[in-house]
Simulated assay, not measured.
Amino acid sequence: MQKANMVTKTGSQPKRTPAGLPGKWELFRRDIKRDKHLYILLSPYMLLFFLFTVFPVMISIFFSFTNFNMLEFPEWVGWENYSKLLWNDDVFLIGLKNTIVFSVITGPISYIACFVFAWLINELNPKVRAFMTLIFFAPSISGNVFFIWQIIFSGDSYGIMNGFLMKIGIIYEPILWLQNPKYMLAIIMLVQLWLSLGTSFLAFIAGLQTVDRTLYEAGSIDGVQNRWQELWYITLPSMRPQLMFGAVIQITASLAVAEVATALAGFPSVQYGAHTIVTHLMDYGTIRFEMGYASAIATVLFSLMLGSNLLVQKLLKRVGE
């Protein structure tokens, strides 16, 4: 009788691991029950996030395996879009090469520049810091600032760059900067770097402001001897969330470049010299309305962004080691 009661009591208890601790699902259930009010408050955001972010991505991935022109019902074609994209679409390969070159150069430079300028400005007094933050952040929030660069790199003798080079005798006739594939991608990189001190820059300044100052005192006791050691062992590890956020922003901006390219080099650009993955996506998605093929392009771009973010996340975990 006692043995039966023991079995009954044991059966009513939660499932436990061999060490006598509750299982993962039991802990998960307890956490949900304990924090149910938090989940209720989060539910409107999560609903909107899944409805307008996760669900469209899943739909796009599905359409990438179909032939869909928005007029007829989607026709399943399997891997045909990806095969055409990687083996038969020379324009896409040009856009892929330009995007990779653009992101490899501008991504790290803009990321480091955002942190370095934020680090230097953070050392100023509050009033000067606020003014300098506005000065550096202003280009990224301005409206159509591309006309400034169009004047600088205008293809006639009235362009600032042509006029300057002709005046000092380096060239003797104007150069069509934004119509020559030899120069246009480099100019677009320069403009993108000029615009790159945006959200990441502000996130880094905010992260630097939240670093606990007592950590520097503790670090000096533990053997931290100079500013570079403070930066590596104290400052950077203390602002990992801001570093990750800035990395996501910069990776997205460098891989999804399109506005600068179309504003300066036109759409399509001469000999596709400034063609990118996003401009190729715009071509098939908003002009030709080949949504299945456009979805395949978007999926490739999404995979590049996801892989880059995962790689950067692993690298940031090594900061301070």
Results as ranks from 00 to 15, higher is better:
residue 65 F to L: 04
residue 261 A to W: 00
residue 116 V to Y: 14
residue 138 A to R: 09
residue 63 F to N: 15
residue 144 N to A: 05
residue 8 T to K: 08
residue 148 I to G: 10
residue 301 L to A: 06
residue 194 W to P: 02
residue 77 V to M: 00
residue 269 S to C: 06
residue 177 W to K: 01
residue 100 I to Q: 03
residue 209 Q to T: 08
residue 193 L to V: 09
residue 36 K to E: 12
residue 75 E to W: 03
residue 312 V to T: 07
residue 119 W to T: 12
residue 119 W to P: 03
residue 29 R to P: 02
residue 18 P to S: 08
residue 61 I to E: 09
residue 99 T to P: 03
residue 56 P to F: 07
residue 140 S to Q: 06
residue 265 A to W: 02
residue 249 I to Y: 05
residue 123 E to R: 07
residue 76 W to R: 00
residue 136 F to G: 12
residue 195 L to A: 06
residue 46 M to T: 05
residue 62 F to D: 15
residue 250 Q to T: 11
residue 18 P to I: 07
residue 254 S to T: 13
residue 278 V to G: 01
residue 201 F to Y: 15
residue 13 Q to H: 09
residue 107 G to Y: 09
residue 110 S to F: 11
residue 198 G to Q: 13
residue 177 W to V: 01
residue 146 F to M: 13
residue 245 F to M: 12
residue 40 I to W: 05
residue 73 F to T: 11
residue 172 Y to P: 00
residue 13 Q to F: 11
residue 221 I to N: 08
residue 301 L to D: 04
residue 110 S to E: 14
residue 314 K to L: 13
residue 171 I to T: 04
residue 87 W to F: 02
residue 128 V to R: 06
residue 69 N to P: 00
residue 114 C to K: 05
residue 139 P to N: 02
residue 117 F to H: 14
residue 198 G to A: 10
residue 194 W to E: 02
residue 225 Q to C: 11
residue 248 V to N: 15
residue 317 K to Y: 05
residue 110 S to V: 13
residue 268 P to Y: 08
residue 132 M to D: 07
residue 177 W to Q: 01
residue 77 V to I: 15
residue 318 R to V: 10
residue 134 L to T: 14
residue 98 N to G: 03
residue 217 E to T: 09
residue 76 W to F: 15
residue 87 W to M: 01
residue 130 A to D: 14
residue 106 T to C: 05
residue 68 F to P: 04
residue 136 F to T: 11
residue 84 K to E: 06
residue 273 G to K: 01
residue 241 P to H: 15
residue 169 G to E: 10
residue 78 G to L: 00
residue 238 S to N: 07
residue 198 G to E: 11
residue 219 G to N: 09
residue 208 L to I: 10
residue 268 P to L: 08
residue 169 G to D: 06
residue 284 Y to T: 05
residue 289 F to H: 10
residue 48 L to D: 12
residue 174 P to A: 10
residue 142 S to Q: 08
residue 137 F to N: 00
residue 210 T to W: 02
residue 287 I to Q: 10
residue 33 K to E: 15
residue 13 Q to N: 12
residue 286 T to S: 12
residue 279 T to W: 08
residue 205 I to M: 07
residue 111 Y to I: 02
residue 254 S to K: 08
residue 208 L to G: 14
residue 161 M to Q: 08
residue 91 V to M: 07
residue 150 Q to C: 09
residue 135 I to M: 13
